[in-house]
């Protein structure tokens, strides 16, 4: 009876997430991304990535966009162990 108010489906069925090329300087960004992890252990890198996700998520703000991104990022990754 009650509707999930968080579920918004756009009329055109498209996602709100931009997957068209949007980075002004793709090579620079990629280099900076790798650079941000230079010399860090795997654990430290994981922590940096976590912060990065949180910072970018806050910048985006729009829950629909974030949901699309989360879904797209997970696509193709199935849990290895039954949960």
């Amino acid at each position: 009876m009650f509707i999930d108010k968080d579920k918004t489906v756009r009329e055109d069925g498209m996602t709100k997430l931009t997957t068209q090329p949007n980075l002004s300087r793709p090579d620079d960004f990629y280099e900076a991304l790798i650079e941000a992890h230079r010399g860090l252990s795997d654990d430290q890198s994981r922590d940096v990535n976590c912060k990065l996700v949180l910072l970018l998520a806050n910048h985006i703000g729009d829950m629909d966009v974030l949901k699309d991104a989360l879904e797209m990022a997970r696509k193709g990754h199935e849990p290895e162990t039954a949960t």
Partner: peptide
């Protein structure tokens, strides 16, 4: 472990950033 990493990252950021 990843849930914990996000939790700790949130706490790290919270020191400085109100959004966190």
């Amino acid at each position: 472990p990843i849930s914990r990493a996000f939790r700790d990252a949130t706490l790290d950021l919270a020191r400085e950033h109100p959004f966190a």
